[in-house]
Design a protein around this nucleic acid. Structure first.
Lengths: 238, 238
DNA sequence: CGCAACGTTGAGGCGTATCAAGCAATGTGG
DNA sequence: CCACATTGCTTGATACGCCTCAACGTTGCG
């Protein structure tokens, strides 16, 4: 498992350099960040943060996929955020973690000690502006997901999820045949069910139904080919 | 209907002075805000902003209640945010409104011209810090609502909603008998159903059921007495 | 091979949506 | 002041989508 990042890597070669919280930093600001950053690795399935615990750090997800999740006492679980490379983890100005964070694939984080990062926020407007921008984007994403959870059918939920993953994982430059797309799902059926407010069985059934209607093809457990993405977009209700 | 604010009111006597985006402003910063603010009034039911339209201003809700809502083509609607006094409306750095904003009671806004407010954000760290803080709070609220929409039963949804309204509207100083509370619902049954991802009929039935179980008493259409708020909290699943 | 983890499929039940009727409060015009 | 319409809410009967429980299939690994 050595596609992980070593502690010595510089920000210049960082794959999320231009999308993460550091995106709009000047070279000198980047140098400051460079000094206080540490990489951490987690294996698939490992917890990263527990809800209610002290948060030792904030940071950016560099590689892999993680989920933000919330539970009810009786075990019902809802995933409230999907963290992909460049997403920010943690909240400056708050002691305790509000949600569980779990690695769903192997994960590398670029972490900053919280007090030092908060200091930076006060002195580096580029960082605090970028963080506000990212927080507002996440707020929009959360609100879009509220429409899905509250009003969409199981079929629409699955279609919306596939479209969303395609949008976030596919490079816009690499267009294949006009409308065909191919993705590797970053989540298991169970993780998808927690994200979509469904059961694992319903997720499975809807994947089968979309396949039967030739809106998707399945390759193994994780691979999905979308022969006509506009057709799938119609099913998603945008 | 002259509980509305006149354009001449100063920030000193503003009811949301210490909770809104201006909360941590110094007197001189407040003076700047004072110069660029305008009050606007809307009647109950009136639209404030349409999704997709140019946003002419940003601002704070001073009095009344408004909703942020999103619609699917076929008319299904989901309320994605409840705006109460001190909440911020609009997003600096974005041209178009992402959601419809509707006044559900008579509403007064304290508006700032967008370009001038954005200028202020760059020059007044107290404002941008406060805005980040508020955005992160809203993000947490949206994520808590995702748990409700994705995993809670209709009964739990109604109980959670009542608890949430009680928390946001009741002054913490004014405690009545230990566990008894009284609220005036700011929303109609229909607006509640859109917020909770239910139908109006289900909302009505669950209110009746909670009443039958003596967890609430209903006074007219909008009044609710909660004889034992801890009991209701148990029903809400917190 | 045997087992564990993940996924699929089927049968039946439950909770909420849908459709429909009626009630209470409020407003309107003759 | 009364007939009538309107709006917001409640209640009932029925339908249906998703959940629950259960069995089975597939893949990967010790």
């Amino acid at each position: 498992m050595e596609k992980n990042f070593s502690k010595e890597k510089s920000c210049d070669s960082c794959p999320i350099r231009h999308r993460a919280v550091c995106a709009s930093c000047e070279p000198n600001e980047l140098a400051t960040l460079d000094q206080i950053k540490t990489y951490r690795n987690y294996d698939a399935g490992q917890p990263i943060i527990f809800a209610g615990d002290q948060m030792p750090f904030v940071g950016s997800l560099v590689t892999g996929t993680a989920t933000l999740e919330q539970m009810l006492e009786d075990g019902r679980k809802q995933t409230v955020g999907l963290l992909l490379p460049s997403d920010f983890i943690g909240r400056p100005g708050r002691e305790l973690a509000p949600y569980d964070v779990t690695a769903v694939t192997d994960v590398t984080l670029c972490c900053f000690q919280k007090p030092k990062f908060e200091e930076l926020l006060r002195t580096t407007p580029h960082v605090s502006q970028r963080l506000l921008e990212m927080a507002l984007d996440e707020l929009d994403a959360a609100r879009d997901w509220m429409l899905l959870l509250g009003r969409k059918t199981a079929r629409e939920k699955i279609a919306t999820f596939i479209i969303m993953i395609e949008k976030r994982l596919t490079h816009p430059t690499l267009t294949r045949h006009q409308n065909e797309r191919h993705i590797i799902l970053p989540l298991t059926r169970e993780a998808m069910s927690d994200y979509l407010g469904l059961t694992i069985e319903t997720v499975s059934r809807q994947f089968s139904a979309l396949k039967k209607d030739e809106l998707i093809r399945l390759e193994g457990k994780r691979g999905v080919t979308i022969p006509d993405i506009t057709a799938l977009r119609d099913v998603a209700g945008y």
